[in-house]
Simulated scan of single mutants.
Amino acid sequence: MAAFISLILVGLYLQEATAVIHSLRYFYTASSGVPDFPSYVSVGLVDDVQISYCDSRTNINVPKQEWMKEVSSEHPNYWEEETATCLGKQQVFKANIEIAKQRFKQTGGVHVYQQMYGCEWDDETGEVKGYDQIGYDGEDFLFLDLQTLTWIAPVQQAVITKNKWDNNRAAIENERSYLTQTCPEWLKKYLSYGRSSLMREDLPSVSILQKSSSSPISCFATGFYPNRAEMFWSIDRVEIHDGVNRGEILPNNDGTFQMTVDIDLSSVPPEDWTNYECVFQFSGISIFHRLENPKRNNEVNQTSGIVYLIALKAAVLGLCVVFTCILYMMKKGET
């Protein structure tokens, strides 16, 4: 059983609000030599939340969020058109994976041809970035440079395709128009449909734990949304890197996210542990968790200690609201 270390949350304060980068991305995947798996799959995501799905077995594009069904009220033929796109891309990708296999002189085995296509929009500055990236067997194959409106070929096998596509100026101009204008327009529509879900902000539950006295100390945050968050260890509010292992942000099964940042304090005297803080930053807010001297803990197999939460937020008429609450430590759950 993991032994929890007591901690004191010494403060949470509001920093200047940061802009949010929203995204609309489509992933198209063709494969060969993979048994019991569709030869083509397409997935659409808004802010990393899946909105649509189609594959070569069902041959129909369907919504994956309830609010995506609202699109039909404004665009009655939307899902029929998305299904037609799915069917058309199946044929193109089936041909492309065979061409790639020929270029790499491959006959059998498992092979995957993928495309990531979409845009990002900064809701504060209005800046838009578009991207079209193609990969083959897990490596970069081609990607579009929107600054020069040319295709970049990281591998020699893609040069033939690069030259062919570079010469099709009409196609490149159409793609530039879609990625920089049409794509962000649809992104804003999807955000309006799913506002109550996509634009929400959920603060995390944060725990400090250690499996044994010689194990690294883990700062674990779970239940936050969206997934744009940072977490690190610091001394005197200065981020430290030595002995720190930062995990990836991972999804929970309820649509929220979790992350872990470990630090090795095995060479640090226990009386100096109080100099260390775990800092979680989210949506302009920073939460500080200061370690206590472990020698003060009487029970190492139970959660102990009082956590003080002080939240400062700007409110109407410029007043500040201060909250104090007790947070319970919780075991790390399975995702």
Rank of each mutant, 00 (worst) to 15 (best):
D55N: 07
R57A: 03
L45Y: 07
L45C: 05
S31N: 11
S73A: 11
Q90N: 13
L45D: 02
E70T: 12
V41I: 15
G88F: 14
A100Q: 11
E82S: 01
M68H: 06
L24Q: 06
N96C: 09
A100N: 10
R57Q: 11
V62M: 12
S23W: 07
S23H: 09
G109L: 04
A19H: 10
N61S: 08
Q65D: 04
Q102K: 07
V41G: 01
D48M: 05
A84S: 12
A17D: 10
S72A: 11
P63I: 04
V34N: 08
Y26T: 06
H22W: 08
G108M: 07
W67V: 02
P38W: 09
C54V: 05
I99S: 03
T107I: 08
D47T: 04
A95Q: 15
Q91T: 14
G88V: 11
F93W: 08
I51G: 01
Y26R: 03
G44L: 06
V41C: 00
Q106R: 15
T85Q: 04
E81G: 00
V49C: 02
Y40W: 10
F104I: 06
E74M: 08
E81Q: 05
L24V: 04
R25L: 11
F27W: 07
E16Y: 13
V34C: 04
K105V: 15
R25M: 14
E74W: 12
L45S: 02
Y40D: 00
W67N: 00
T107D: 10
L87I: 09
A30P: 02
Y78C: 02
V46S: 00
G44A: 09
W67K: 00
A19E: 14
K105R: 15
N59C: 12
F27K: 09
F104C: 02
T58G: 13
S73M: 11
G44M: 03
A100K: 14
G33M: 04
L45A: 06
S31I: 15
S31D: 11
E66I: 15
D36P: 00
V20H: 09
V43T: 05
Q106G: 01
G44N: 00
V49Q: 04
N59F: 15
V46Y: 03
G88Q: 15
Q90C: 08
Q50N: 03
M68R: 10
H22Q: 06
T85L: 15
R103I: 11
E80I: 03
E70Q: 15
D55W: 00
V92K: 04
A17W: 08
C86L: 03
E66P: 04
W79M: 02
K101Y: 12
K105P: 00
N96L: 14
K105M: 15
Q91R: 15
D48E: 10
K89H: 06
E98A: 15
V41P: 01
Y28M: 03
G44C: 05
D47K: 09
I97Q: 00
Q50T: 05
N61V: 11
L24A: 06
V43K: 02
E82M: 04
S56V: 03
S31L: 09
F93Y: 13
T18I: 12
Q50D: 03
F37I: 05
E98I: 10
K101D: 04
E74Y: 14
T58D: 13
N61L: 07
